[in-house]
Design a protein around this nucleic acid. Structure first.
Lengths: 334, 334
DNA sequence: TTGTAGGCGTTATCAA
DNA sequence: TTGATAACGCCTACAA
């Protein structure tokens, strides 16, 4: 079946293709009479404009790329939901890219982003370098980074929608320190290294302000299958600290199980806070205290900022937006 | 910055644009000498072909659409991973669409699929009707449906990569029936209705073959926030059956918690099998028996089948592929 | 082996 | 208000 084109419509309505184009795009003025005729022809033939041809003619694809790491997007469903919903409102198509660590596949992704001529890009933290940001910027492609705060940048085509993890960690730890508890540890999450660094910074600041030093950053090499494996092993000969901070659910669950097996009571012997909340943490027994991060909103706002950059002045201000969060106390904290 | 085009390269290398096109696409024979010259020019100018223009010229976008329901894709990360990896191998771009139930957004998705002129589509079960499949077929767009088995179809442009949930349920229930246990229930999962129906069919068949009738299909209306809420309420005045079958983790976890709170022992008082495995089920105490569904492979194979349909004869045979599964016994079964 | 020219489906600029 | 016509960037017969 030959796809029907603007020519077919023009012939059917007995006008020139220019006129058809006009009624499609609502440009200029078209006489009521002919507009109706054209619309009828469109309806009758079931004509649908070819977005590719439009893209070529307009140098605008109404498509934006979303790139996130392969591992990460399993945890970021809601962020994606937020982005998808907003993109629908503005009628943007979504090109989806994933990066796997290891070989720097980000190169390939950038390559295909450039070739695809998408109008904008949304990147997640933790899967690109500054060089790569620079490349995209050279091509004048507006982009927004979502997740954590990115370093001071003066690239005008970059926006940032983020959670201030440094502040979050600082506040959390300060509270405990002020209650006389300084036996605190944080478990590294290799999937979110840049967020970890920000949190570490916040914790260290809290300690430093009180003349102390934070030392219990629990990291591990690649010899374990994952965090869970590592932690169950780790707690065989380590007593959990009074407060343990984890980033994701897997780590929190590992801690809960390890404590249970070692005979420690929560929250009496040890307290646990997981940064990223999800439903499993509330289903667990004991249920795990966590932070309510507005994931959906992060995605929605990021996409909205991007569309703003696309239609408005690209040098728009207020492109950096800090999102809030709130603590969800559950059974693992007093 | 003006994007540099094939003309620029041609001028730089002092050849015609046709020649440049030839070296880019490796078409015809180009003399070694000029090819090198062209390649140098490409390198020097940093030329990247405009995929949009290529798409227009070739009527081929090397892009495929993936459409899945908004709710579902949070659970199907690995399937997506499989699809993404294979699409990378074949250099296909991914256009990502989500459908939310309620208003039939599927209409919009189809609209944009048609306009985008993607080369093929991958659909998940449970988010389209046969009519919608027909529309896509009218446009000759190759597509594959992934997840459960779709009804007999004779649309030549549709492939199907699936798990035989009917068989799975039949086998599972048969085993228990043959051991004299017929106090079995299955909890409905509203996110996967078509799979539920297939499983129900399998269970009913197992019962029927033994002159019995399956009655304990546990469903609920929309008055609960979700399955978890419903189940915790349900088991206040219902004793769990000897075997409970759930589809997803949330439901399984609800059962585990409900039993624990009601003082039932697993697996002695009641056994539990969750169809879709995931890491939380193995972390839970007791850990939940489940099926190892090759999610990644489902996605990978689906994408591979689609690419085959795209390059090979579109009327290729063996487009319907049944994937295997295996049982993972854990603490909730004897 | 290389170049010329027409076409892919739209939009936009001019004239009419 | 409408209609030619030249882009948009690339590919591919057809010629040379």
């Amino acid at each position: 079946m030959k796809r029907i084109t603007i020519y077919d419509v023009a012939k059917e309505a007995d006008v020139s293709l220019a006129t058809v184009s006009r009624v499609i795009n609502d440009r200029n003025v078209v006489s009521e009479k002919t507009r109706v005729r054209v619309e009828e022809a469109i309806e009758k033939l079931g004509y649908k404009p070819n977005a590719i041809a439009q893209g070529l003619a307009l140098s605008k694809t109404t498509t934006v790329s979303i790139v996130m790491s392969e591992k990460l997007f399993q945890y970021n469903g809601k962020i994606l939901n937020g982005m998808m919903d907003v993109s629908k409102i503005y009628n943007y198509n979504i090109m989806f890219h994933t990066t796997s660590k290891g070989i720097s596949k980000m190169q390939d992704v950038i390559e295909s982003i450039i070739k695809s001529h998408v109008d904008g890009v949304i990147l997640f933290n933790d899967n690109f370098s500054n060089d790569e940001l620079e490349v995209l910027h050279e091509y004048q492609i507006p982009m927004v980074v979502v997740g954590g705060k990115i370093d001071e940048h003066n690239i005008p085509t970059v926006g940032n929608v983020y959670i201030n993890f440094e502040k979050l960690a600082y506040e959390l730890v300060s509270k405990y320190l002020d209650n006389g508890i300084d036996d605190i540890s944080m478990v590294e999450d290799k999937l979110n290294l840049s967020m970890m660094l920000q949190m570490k910074k916040g914790i260290e600041k809290a300690y430093a302000q009180r003349g102390k030093t934070f030392t219990q950053y629990i990291s591990y090499d690649g010899s374990y299958k994952g965090t869970y494996d590592f932690l169950t092993h780790y707690y065989k000969d380590h007593k959990p600290t009074k407060l343990v901070i984890t980033f994701r659910d897997s780590q929190a669950i590992a801690i809960v199980n390890a404590c249970k097996e070692a005979g420690y009571e929560m929250p009496d012997d040890t307290e646990l806070v997981c940064v990223l909340n999800n439903k499993y943490l509330s289903m667990l027994r004991p249920s795990v205290s966590a932070y309510n991060i507005p994931e959906y909103d992060l995605g929605a706002v990021a996409m909205r900022v991007l569309t703003k950059m696309l239609v408005d002045d690209p040098s728009l201000k207020t492109k950096d937006i800090e999102m809030g969060y709130s603590f969800l106390p559950r059974q693992t904290t007093k």
